[in-house]
Design a protein around this nucleic acid. Structure first.
Lengths: 245, 245
DNA sequence: CGCTTATTTGAATGTCCTCAATCACCGTGG
DNA sequence: CCACGGTGATTGAGGACATTCAAATAAGCG
């Protein structure tokens, strides 16, 4: 075994990856866990601004984000309109949209330098047949994505700008906090344009709404640095009619 | 074997169901196909207006629509806002959102009298481990739902009212036509309120936009009956900048 | 046939968008 | 080190599209 492959084996082994609880928390015995290491083919770097995959690319693998931050987007076939469909961080899986037609139907772009674990889908299906716990986990991951998108649809269908931005911030901070970062401070990895696209509003409205929150003492914001001063106020904006029920 | 169970076996057998190509088109040998019949537990009627499941219900099964038409919706936790997340017709599978937390996270309501096949999820997982073709099919169904929701997000995030309604009509007619119905005529099963909720606009805007399409000779509409006169015009509205690219 | 609900249409209002200018930041090169 | 250009973000003013509120009409259901 070459030195290179030894290093790679070490680097890509799920069994001793500190992200496993986030990424593949299937309850397996230590022996079975070794087999799970076969699920990862390689670790692949993606530089900031680079595309991991694009609409129309052949689908072979899912990707688990080891480090870094991505956005996914789709573009209207005819005019060039872009719609950001999500932001993904450490431990999250991207590429699920590609399974149905063996083609990726969205773009995944790194918003900071990243490393992803390449999970060949054939491996996943093979191992899923062997390990019910892994099978169940894959089903849950897909279902979770469906539920997440349901929530985005709700946001886009019923909320106005301030509510959308409050929901966005709360969600981002919650996920960031789950990964061991501060509950109150964050550095946004995406532009105002990206936020606006995701929330179905213009970048100017994003900026104006941030400023409004700032004036009201709810957040502190300087460019991409955000600090939450009054989380309750954000939750109140997110659920405006709470007291009316 | 009692007469009842014989009838049920006959009624719910996938192997001789005329919808199989729509619902479970997995390439299996006749012998294997017999085993697939075990996937369906029962056939269950749902009357118009009844709920098949509700947010918070325990999740046990997916449902395949045998006959009928459903809407799925979610409601904001605090105020009562409803967001319609989709309309489902014959051959489509509902309930995928429930897998992740073993709880349904949306409501499924019959918009006309319906029959659904109850597919216990444990059966699906068991048979999926045995039949790679079924496993692959289930993955594709979930991925398809993710892609569908991506398209809804695009619609809600970037399109204006006329485009949304054009996209809605084209999608509905296409799916209806795939099931052997007319390419140009349809009877809507849902209210203007439901359409508006799905498209993120008010019922008044739905009505006004229908009237506008009517004035322009693109469609003919009388209450819930719709006839498409100029499908190209609808496609043009859906893709406004086609000629500019 | 009468009641209830769904749909259509109108007028006024409001939220967000568009267009435009200014400002802040970051990296580059002088 | 600082000036410079480019990109990203903020802010303002006017306008457009969709909403809200309201009334009238039509349709479905007992």
């Amino acid at each position: 075994m070459s030195k290179t492959s030894l290093i790679q084996d070490y680097k890509t082994a799920c069994s001793n990856c500190h992200l496993r609880e986030l990424c593949l928390p299937v309850g397996l015995s230590p022996d079975d866990l070794q087999k799970l290491n076969n699920i990862v083919k390689t670790r692949q770097p993606v530089l900031k601004g680079e595309k991991l995959f694009t609409e129309g690319d052949e689908f072979n693998s899912l990707f688990a984000i080891h480090t870094g931050f991505f956005k996914t987007s789709i573009t209207a076939t005819d005019d060039g309109r872009e719609q950001v469909t999500g932001f993904q961080m450490t431990g999250e899986i991207i590429g699920l949209d590609g399974i149905v037609n063996d083609l990726h139907t969205c773009n995944a772009i790194a918003l900071e330098d990243a490393d992803v674990c390449v999970l060949p889908f054939e491996n996943i299906e093979l191992l899923s047949r062997e390990f019910p716990a892994l099978q169940r986990h894959m089903h849950k991951i897909m279902s979770r994505e469906i539920v997440r998108e349901n929530e985005v649809i709700m946001l886009l269908g019923t909320m106005q700008a301030e509510e959308r931005l409050a929901a966005f911030l709360l969600n981002l901070f919650q996920r960031s906090h789950m990964r061991g970062f501060s509950k109150s401070e964050i550095v946004l990895r995406m532009s105002r344009q990206d936020i606006g696209s995701y929330l179905g509003i213009t970048l100017e409205t994003v900026s104006r709404t941030f400023s409004k929150f700032c004036d009201e003492g709810i957040i502190e914001i300087k460019q991409r640095y955000v600090r939450i001063i009054k989380p309750e106020a954000l939750k109140e904006i997110f659920n405006p009619n709470k007291s009316c029920q």
